[in-house]
Amino acid sequence: MTSLWYKTYSILRKNLAVRLNSPMSLLVSLGNGLLILFAFFYVTRLFGASAAPYLSRYGGDYFPFIIIGLAFNQFYLTGEQAVRNAIYNMGHAESVLTTRTSLLEYISIKTLLDYLGQIARIILLLLAGYALFGMKITAHGIAGACIVAVLTIICSFSYGIITASFLLAFKRQLPVSSLLQRLQALLSGVYFPLSLLPAWLKGASLVLPMTYSLDGLRMTIIKGASLSSISGDVFALAVFSMIFAPLSIVVFKLGVWKAKHNGTLLFRKD
């Protein structure tokens, strides 16, 4: 256990040394967040009242609805992006792959640290929205929000690992990956409430874990909903986690096995 903490600390220390070397990128990231808040604050003012009936489940205000949707959509993409980046950079890390640290352990630690960074960015974004634009959010449902966030990490990390296995084995990103990401954002209610979707598409949204993540997070962060009132979302996410987590490990092991046979383990981005 000591070794795991020490390993995590060492990777974090190295990442920070690299990141702090370019403080401009941190400022750009914060600036981007503020611009998003600014833009959607005025979009909400443009048609706020007309959207209220569709958003009654989440308090009727589009501003926190879209900000939470966009923030956690990015959070969801972290799994795939962080795992992919870890693998892209591995082309220069033969020395890492020949240590006692397994590939899965190395990728998991790196990705977990990316999630922590993402959580910090989301908290800053929500606080800035609250302080500067009067965004209606509450801390009453924080326990439920944390549980949903943890289950969301398990689901998205597992998905990231599955796509990474494809990358390892075939030296190529899943060709439809970006299309799937956009489709998922559309069907899980990042931009608009699911009640607007036609009935035949609503069924598709039910098989996406992000649908439950976004509903649970909006209910807890905007309305301060208790854990019992989001139990449906928590249950669905727990089921997805129990299916995806072991599946991702099996698929990853197959991917590594194939990569070691095909010589594609040391991936270099073309």
Binding site: Y6, K14, H92, S95, V96, R100
Partner: peptide
Amino acid sequence: CTDFGLSNQLNALDNLLYFGALQDLPP
């Protein structure tokens, strides 16, 4: 290996401590 995998932003000792951690060595 031919790719050093060293971080220019870290000093020599910290680079080695990083790999020491990956080798499961206690601090």
